[in-house]
Structure formats: structure tokens, C-alpha cells
């Protein structure tokens, strides 16, 4: 029972990170019907950039809380700029081109960022400082939960609630959902769809940057091609939840995180990736559109 609860906590932690990253895939897919393969690499880049900012601030600023908040905010801004540039340079010129062109462009952008990271920071892993988040652990009835885990869980949850509120309760959120359904009909409402797409990239990149920073601070080791594996897991999470569906990405991320943790806890972590695909295939067989994908059949 203890191992169950412990792996549940661990799984929800990594699941939150997957969910944050999965949101970026699913939101961009929603408005562009395009898999932004470079998203995972932006997540990796955010860990590197966050580390640079952190190292600059340590020694200048004494409060760790201030350092952490500043790192999150500046990294989110920088990665958002990268996300907007990515859309402008790699995807917008191909909006009317055949789908394959955009896919190739996405893969190209992914390789460019990944190799750019390697050129700047080298092929060896970088390590986040140990004590930036105080190493505090609580024992809750035999289950250990660290301050870092608590931060990941709480911040992710808050961000997801804000996102959910934004998308469902605000005018801009409604415009975003409308643009995802029918771009021309959205234009007829007076919605500037290009602006909505840029907004989507900003939100997706910001959430991804939080995910990337959590990876760095939680696992501490970061490497230039980590965007590939985290991106893949998050992408699978988005598909499991129903690509294009925002609550689906949250659910898919949590589900995959917990699933991976149980595999690691009861079997071995080396099984995790293989069994992730088994889970994906099983879900695709029973729910080809993902768990929450396309709940409403549209009448014509």
C-alpha cells in the first residue's frame, strides 16, 4: 500500500510536468491542426535558459524565493518569444502549403533548436544547483513528499485552473475555441485569427517553459536532447487525452505520469517507455479520438 501511494505521489508530480508540456502540443494542434514537433525542444531550451538566469541571480539576490520566481518569469518570456518566432518563421509561411511541408518544417525547427542547445552548452549534461529549493521532506503516513514535489503539484494545478478559466470564461478564450473549430467563421465574428494563433504559441510556450524548469529543478540533470523524450511523453499524453482537447491534455499527462510511476515502482523503469506505447495503443483501440476527444458529433 505504501509503495502504491508513494508511486501515486511521484506519478502525479511527473504527470503534472507532462500535462504542462502536453498543453502546448494540444493547444497549437487545436488552432493549426499541426503537431509542433519543436515544442519539446523549447521545453529543453527553457531548462538551459532558466539555469543561466538562476546562476546569474545566485550570489546577487539572497532570497531563494525571489530567484525562483524571477527565473520562472524571465524564462517564460524568453521562451514565448522563441515560440512566436517559431510560428512566424517555420509555420506561418506554410499555412496554405501541403501538410507534409509543415511537418518537415516542424521537424527541422526541432533539430535546429536541439543542435543549437548542443552548440551553445555542449553535449554533456548540465546540473541544476542542489539547494535552490530547500530539501524538505514530509512523511505523511508513510508516504514521503518533498517541498519540490509539492511546488510542482501546486503550481501546475494553479496554472491549469487559470488556463481552464481563461479558455472557458473569457472572451479571448472563446475566440480561441472558435478559431480552433472554424477559422473562417471566426473571422466573420471579427476575430483576428493570426493574433489568436500567436496568443496560443505564447501560452503553450510559457506552460512548456514551466515544465522545462520543473524538470531541471526536480531531476536536476538536463541534457541537450531531453526535449525529445519529454516531448514524446507529453505528446503521447496529449493523444491519450484527445489531441486538441485542453482538459484531455491535463488528464492524459496525469494518467501517463502515474502509469509510468507504477511501472517503475512495481516492474522497472526500463519498461516504462515500451509499456507507454502499449497503453497508447490500447486507448487508441477503444477510444480512437482519445479519452476526451471530440465528445460531440457535429450535425451537418
Amino acid at each position: 500500500m505504501d509503495i502504491f501511494l508513494q508511486q501515486l505521489v511521484n506519478g502525479l508530480t511527473i504527470g503534472s510536468i507532462y500535462a504542462l508540456v502536453a498543453l502546448g502540443y494540444t493547444m497549437v494542434y487545436g488552432v493549426l491542426k499541426l503537431i509542433n514537433f519543436a515544442h519539446g525542444d523549447l521545453v529543453a531550451l527553457s531548462a538551459y535558459i532558466g539555469l543561466v538566469i538562476m546562476m546569474q541571480l545566485i550570489g546577487v539576490v539572497s532570497s531563494k524565493a525571489v530567484i525562483i520566481i524571477a527565473v520562472f518569469i524571465f524564462t517564460a518570456i524568453i521562451i514565448s518569444i522563441f515560440g512566436v518566432l517559431l510560428e512566424r518563421m517555420a509555420y506561418r509561411p506554410l499555412r496554405k502549403a501541403p501538410r507534409l511541408s509543415a511537418v518537415v518544417s516542424a521537424l527541422g525547427a526541432s533539430l535546429l533548436i536541439e543542435n543549437g542547445i548542443m552548440l551553445i552548452w555542449g553535449p554533456m549534461p548540465k546540473i541544476f544547483p542542489a539547494s535552490i529549493v530547500p530539501n524538505i521532506n514530509w512523511n505523511v503516513g508513510g508516504v514521503y513528499i518533498s517541498l519540490m514535489q509539492l511546488l510542482v503539484l501546486v503550481i501546475s494545478l494553479i496554472l491549469m485552473i487559470i488556463l481552464y478559466f481563461f479558455v472557458n470564461q473569457t472572451k479571448l478564450g472563446a475566440a480561441m475555441r472558435a478559431s480552433a473549430i472554424d477559422q473562417d467563421a471566426a473571422r466573420l465574428m471579427g476575430i483576428n485569427v493570426d493574433k489568436i494563433i500567436v496568443t496560443t504559441f505564447i501560452i503553450g510556450s510559457s506552460l512548456g517553459s514551466v515544465g522545462g524548469l520543473f524538470i531541471g529543478m526536480y531531476y536536476r540533470g538536463i541534457y541537450f536532447n531531453m526535449g525529445w523524450i519529454y516531448g514524446l511523453n507529453a505528446f503521447v499524453a496529449a493523444i491519450i487525452g484527445g489531441i486538441g482537447n485542453i482538459p484531455g491534455a491535463m488528464l492524459g499527462g496525469m494518467l501517463l505520469g502515474v502509469f509510468n510511476a507504477f511501472i517503475s515502482g512495481y516492474l522497472s523503469s526500463s519498461w516504462a517507455l515500451a509499456l507507454t506505447y502499449v497503453l497508447l495503443i490500447v486507448i487508441m483501440i477503444f477510444r480512437p479520438t482519445g479519452i476526451l476527444g471530440e465528445r460531440v458529433a457535429e450535425k451537418v
Binding site: R177, A178, I181, D182, D184, A185, L188, R295, V296, E298
Partner: peptide, 10 residues
């Protein structure tokens, strides 16, 4: 527009 084009999931 032709074909109504309402936002079905809204």
C-alpha cells in the same frame, strides 16, 4: 454563411 458554420462545441 452558407452551411451555417456555427461553433458546434460551444
Amino acid at each position: 454563411p452558407e452551411g451555417r458554420r456555427v461553433f458546434g462545441t460551444l
